[in-house]
Structures are given as C-alpha cells and as structure tokens.
Amino acid sequence: MSGVDELLAVLQLTDSAFPSGMYTLSHSLEGYQQARAVTPATLPALLAGILSAGAGPSDATAVALAHRACTAGDWPAVAAVDRRLHATKLGREARQATVRTGRQLLDLTREIHRTPELETLAGLDGVRPCRPVVAAVAHAALGVPVEHAVAAELFGLAASLAGAALRLRLTDHRRAQLLLRRLAPAIERATADALARDLADLGGCTPLADLMGARHERAEARLFAS
C-alpha cells in the first residue's frame, strides 16, 4: 500500500461512523455517571487513567502483539493473544462487547479488503475473536506499521469515550474535541508502553472501572451496552 492508502485504511477503521458497534459502548463511563463518580471537571483525568492503566496494558498491548505475530505468520501466537486478552476482561459486559464488536469488525473488514490474513483469522481455531486482535490483523494485512496500529487503537477508544461522554451530557461537541487533543500525551505514552510489553504483561489494572462495569450490568436503565 502507498502512504496515502495506509492513512486512509487507518482513518476508515478508526472512524466513529465505522459500524463495528463501538457506538453502543461507554466502556464503564455510564457506570461512573450513574454512581455520580465523574463530572465534566474530572472527566479528562478519568479518561487518561482508563487509557494508561486499562486500554494501554490490555487492548493496545494485544494490538502490538497480534500485529507482530500476524506479520510473522505466527497464527498460534495470534490465537494466544486473543485468549489472553479475553481472559483479562473481568466483567461480563466487557467480554461480550469485545467479542461482539470483534466479529462485526472482522465480517465488515473482510467485505472491504478480502486479504489472506483476514480470511485466515476468520477460520482460525481457538479465537473468538476479540476486537483489538481483529484490528491488529487488519492493520498488519494492510501494511500499517505496528506503532500506527497501536496508536489508532487507543485513539479510536478515546474517540468512543468522548462520544459516550457527549451522549451522557458530560461534555459538548466543542469540548469533546478539546478533550481528545488533551488526551494525546496519554495516548503517546500508552502506545510506547504497549510496544514494549510481551504476552505475560498483557492485562490492565482498573479495579474501579471494573466495579462500575459490574454495577452497570445490574442497572435498571442503561443507555449503553457496557
């Protein structure tokens, strides 16, 4: 792929309008809002923490590992990353969400690109697959460098969180864009950290977010699926 093709592929897969189902998720943010544990003033620090302590060590690390394994043609390693990532999702909603959006992402990306790597992943035994693993294989198949793939994963999550905050009335459209820009340093650090981890290090530590997700599962009314 040319540099422009690579850029377009990244932009398409991380676009908030891409129908992978990410718009249905709040990534525990609705649980925080229901518990009155987040305000517009505390939102930026909360999202930075989710990226650095949660998504960075888990989803972003999975992207780095699965991308490298796919590039090397090591499909057992891809499957091992998928299993490990799924096991680190402590909440039922989080596990279901990563598989549901992963299958949707895989089906749609195969329609668009039809690469041998995506076809191999679709037929691979022992994978669900989790969405970050699908994204990693898609980016690897399209020639997107691993560091760009990891940063794209984290930015896509940040954009999804900002969208959820908007729907939860924790921000507005203008402040959401400012919020995304302010999260750039956290994304950069989380990207560098994810690239340096191995499989044994895969897994975030966000006990409060896990608690909010568990509370959200039992909420009487929910706007989001997680």
Rank of each mutant, 00 (worst) to 15 (best):
L13K: 02
L124A: 11
A184Q: 14
R114A: 15
A138P: 04
A165G: 15
L118D: 04
S26K: 05
V4I: 12
R68E: 15
A165F: 05
A141S: 15
A135H: 09
L85Y: 01
L180H: 05
E111M: 11
A194I: 09
L208E: 14
D107C: 10
A149Y: 08
L154I: 07
T115P: 02
T39W: 07
R169W: 07
C130H: 05
I187D: 00
A48I: 01
E119G: 00
T98Y: 04
A45L: 11
A77K: 03
A9N: 10
L105G: 05
A72D: 14
V10K: 01
L108A: 10
L118Y: 09
L51P: 01
G56C: 06
V127G: 04
V146N: 02
A152V: 10
S16V: 15
Q12D: 11
A200D: 13
L154T: 03
L118P: 09
E6P: 00
T101S: 10
T109Q: 04
V99W: 09
D82I: 03
R174V: 14
G123C: 13
A60R: 03
G21F: 12
D198I: 06
G123N: 13
R128I: 08
V4E: 04
A162N: 02
A159G: 13
T14R: 12
A192P: 08
E188H: 13
G156A: 15
L65D: 09
L7C: 09
F155I: 05
L25N: 07
R110H: 02
E30G: 09
A55P: 00
Q96D: 14
A190F: 03
S28M: 05
L180C: 13
A192M: 12
L8D: 04
G156H: 07
T101D: 00
D82N: 13
A97D: 14
V137N: 02
L29K: 02
A77D: 09
I112D: 01
L118I: 06
E30Y: 11
V99E: 07
A64V: 02
A94N: 07
H86T: 10
H113L: 09
I187M: 13
G102P: 12
A152T: 11
A141H: 10
V4Q: 12
L46H: 06
G3E: 14
A136H: 06
A122L: 00
G156S: 15
A165P: 06
A186W: 01
D5N: 07
L25Q: 11
V10S: 00
R83W: 00
L105R: 04
G203R: 10
G123R: 10
R103E: 14
D193F: 08
P76Q: 03
A192F: 06
S26N: 03
T24K: 10
I112G: 01
G49H: 12
V133F: 10
L29D: 00
L13G: 01
R222A: 15
D172M: 11
Q34D: 11
R169Y: 08
A152H: 11
R95D: 03
S16C: 02
A94W: 02
Q177E: 12
L154F: 08
L25E: 02
S2K: 05
